[in-house]
Simulated assay, not measured.
Amino acid sequence: MHDEKIRAYAEIMDEMGLTGLEVEEGGAKIRLERGVPQAAAPVVITQQGLAGDGAADAESATPKGELYSVRSPLVGVFYVAPAENAEPFVMPGDRVKKGQTLCIVEAMKLMNEITAEEPGVVEKVCVTNGQMVEYGAELFQIRR
């Protein structure tokens, strides 16, 4: 496989926010992996604006008692559990910690864990298991 093709696959990974990609072409097989990029982190919307974009200035945390949304950082298929017959990661009413896995979004056969940006209580799961989600789609509402 030529360097140009490998670089093109790396660019695709960047564009889609993927952490890994495996390609088989003409008998050659290549697997590219990288650490989790910042773009793959969950996007949190607060009353002040998009967390991390400077709109919230010094205070990026959602005020206590208010809802914040966890949105999909990529296009893919939403899964509530790690396996078909497994218990869901979280359900409405569950208390979650910062960094706790909420769901998986599968993109190009890669399972991307979506985590809670802040601690709180899951108020609502906004999509159904197996549903295709777009970039920025609201996945959960969590009360701080």
Rank of each mutant, 00 (worst) to 15 (best):
I45G: 14
G26S: 11
H2I: 04
F140M: 07
A86F: 07
E22S: 15
E15R: 01
E113T: 00
L50D: 10
S60Y: 01
Y135P: 07
G76D: 03
K29R: 14
A39E: 12
Q100V: 02
I104V: 14
P92I: 00
T128N: 15
E117L: 08
F78E: 02
E25Y: 03
T46D: 13
Q47T: 11
E4W: 04
D57K: 11
C126I: 00
A137F: 01
F89W: 04
M111L: 07
K29E: 11
C103E: 06
L74F: 07
E22Y: 01
L18K: 03
E33N: 05
G26R: 04
M1K: 08
V77A: 10
E87F: 01
G76Y: 01
R71M: 08
S69I: 00
L18I: 01
P119W: 00
A116L: 11
I12H: 10
V43S: 08
V122C: 08
I6P: 12
A40Q: 08
S72K: 04
I30K: 07
R31C: 12
E106T: 03
A137L: 07
E87Q: 09
G35L: 02
H2C: 05
P37Y: 00
R34A: 10
Q48D: 12
K109C: 09
F140Y: 15
L32W: 03
S60H: 08
L18S: 09
V121P: 03
V96P: 15
A137K: 03
Y68H: 09
P119E: 09
L67V: 05
K124L: 05
V127P: 15
V23Y: 03
A8G: 14
P42N: 01
K97M: 06
F89Y: 14
Q100T: 03
G136W: 01
R144F: 06
G120I: 04
A83T: 00
I142C: 15
D14V: 05
M16D: 13
M132A: 15
K98F: 06
E11H: 10
T46F: 08
L21K: 05
N85T: 06
G26N: 12
E22V: 03
G65D: 04
T62E: 13
A58E: 15
G17I: 01
V80C: 05
L110T: 08
P63T: 00
I104L: 14
G26A: 09
G99K: 06
Q48W: 03
G26Q: 10
K124S: 14
N85A: 13
G54Q: 11
L21D: 10
F78S: 05
H2F: 06
S72V: 00
K5Q: 15
V90A: 09
P42E: 00
Q131H: 09
D57Q: 12
P82Y: 00
M16Q: 12
V133T: 07
I45D: 13
Q38H: 02
P92T: 02
M111V: 00
Y68K: 04
R144V: 05
G49P: 13
T128I: 11
M13V: 06
L50K: 11
G54L: 08
A40N: 10
E84G: 08
L102K: 04
L102R: 05
E24R: 09
A137H: 06
E25T: 03
M132C: 06
Q38E: 09
L32T: 10
E25D: 14
L32K: 07
G35I: 05
A39R: 06
E15H: 01
N112G: 12
M1D: 12
E59F: 05
D3P: 06
M91Y: 02
M91Q: 13
V75H: 13
T115H: 15
A28W: 02
